[in-house]
Computed example of a mutant assay.
Amino acid sequence: MATQRKSIFITGAASGMGRETARLFAAKGWFVGAHDVNEAGLKDLQAELGAEACLIRRLDVTDREDYRAALDAFAPAAGGRLDILFNNAGIGRGGRFDKQPWEDIVAVVQVNLMGVLIGIYEAVPLLKATPNSLCFTTSSSSATFGMAGIAVYSATKHAVKGLTEALSVEFKAIGVRVADVLPGLIDTPILPPGAVAAAPKEGMWRAMPPSSVAQVVWEAYQSDKLHWYVPEEIAELDKAATLAPEAMREQMAQNSLFGDPA
């Protein structure tokens, strides 16, 4: 039982950003609900953090009934409170849009968008019951401007960013804060092999450790800031894409590997 400890419910907690967030919040004395489809990773995490600090459960975020059951199991263990819902689970499948398997397109939409919608919808009662609660979601730097090669992934992250903005207004009436993080290149298993080694050493596309996102989740709870960028330079990309989308389109096209229609 969490008794009076603050609590965080994390999806995609078995590895990468979710795992680092679980570690950080457990170290801060919070009760952690760690959820993922990777049961082996969850068991390893619980062994590291201790069962008194961490409740684990397999969760398919695309299954509304499963999500509801996970929250039902979490609530009594967390003393009926949910200080942060961290919608972090996501998958990345890319390629040229007209060459992608339809099943991959659907899977990306189901996990990256529907999983977020389900999670927020089902968690609202717990968030409302917890003073100063935060609904926090992982968006992406690809939500600044649609990115070739990951068009559907990018579209889902644009949707998450827009949802965050809308709910940040709506949820004021029920006392729930809403924010998101737009990470750039984060060294996690979602990246293709060799991506980190090939990344520049400086600038907005440098590889960042997953712990940098975990730190942002912690800072977001102490703040009323809406969008968080990792690294912070991604914010400049967001501004540029908004002010001059045509110029951004041409710049992206020049750097794209998807110009050949064959």
Rank of each mutant, 00 (worst) to 15 (best):
M1N: 14
A2N: 14
T3D: 15
T3L: 11
Q4Y: 13
R5H: 11
R5A: 10
R5T: 08
F9W: 15
T11L: 09
G12C: 05
A13N: 02
S15E: 09
S15N: 11
G16V: 05
M17R: 09
E20H: 12
A22M: 03
A22P: 06
L24K: 11
F25S: 05
F25N: 05
W30C: 03
V32C: 03
A34D: 04
A34E: 04
D36N: 08
V37L: 13
V37N: 10
N38I: 04
G41L: 04
Q46S: 12
L49P: 03
A53E: 13
C54E: 02
C54Y: 00
L55H: 14
I56Y: 13
R57C: 10
L59P: 05
V61G: 06
D63P: 03
D63V: 05
Y67S: 04
A69R: 11
A70M: 02
A73D: 15
F74R: 12
G80S: 02
R81E: 07
F86H: 11
G90M: 06
G90A: 15
G94I: 04
G94E: 08
F97V: 13
K99D: 09
Q100I: 06
W102Y: 15
D104A: 14
D104Q: 15
I105H: 02
A107K: 13
N112S: 11
V116R: 06
I118C: 13
G119W: 11
Y121K: 12
E122V: 12
A123F: 10
V124C: 08
L126Q: 04
L126T: 01
L126C: 01
A129W: 08
A129S: 09
T130R: 02
T130E: 03
S133K: 07
C135M: 14
T138F: 07
A148S: 14
G149L: 05
G149P: 06
K157Q: 03
K157Y: 02
H158W: 07
G162K: 06
A166E: 04
L167C: 11
V169K: 13
V169T: 12
E170S: 12
F171I: 10
A173R: 15
G175L: 06
V178I: 01
V178G: 00
D180P: 01
V181K: 00
V181N: 01
L185C: 10
T188G: 03
I190S: 12
V196W: 04
V196T: 10
A199W: 01
A199E: 05
K201D: 11
G203N: 06
G203T: 03
G203P: 07
A207P: 13
M208C: 12
M208K: 09
P209Y: 08
P210C: 05
S211T: 09
S211P: 01
V213A: 01
A214Y: 06
Q215S: 13
V217R: 00
W218E: 15
W218P: 10
W218Q: 15
H227V: 02
W228S: 05
W228N: 04
Y229D: 00
E232Q: 09
E232V: 04
I234S: 00
A235P: 04
L237T: 00
L237N: 01
D238H: 09
T242A: 01
E246Y: 07
R249C: 07
R249K: 14
Q251K: 13
Q254N: 13
Q254A: 15
S256K: 03
G259E: 08
P261G: 08
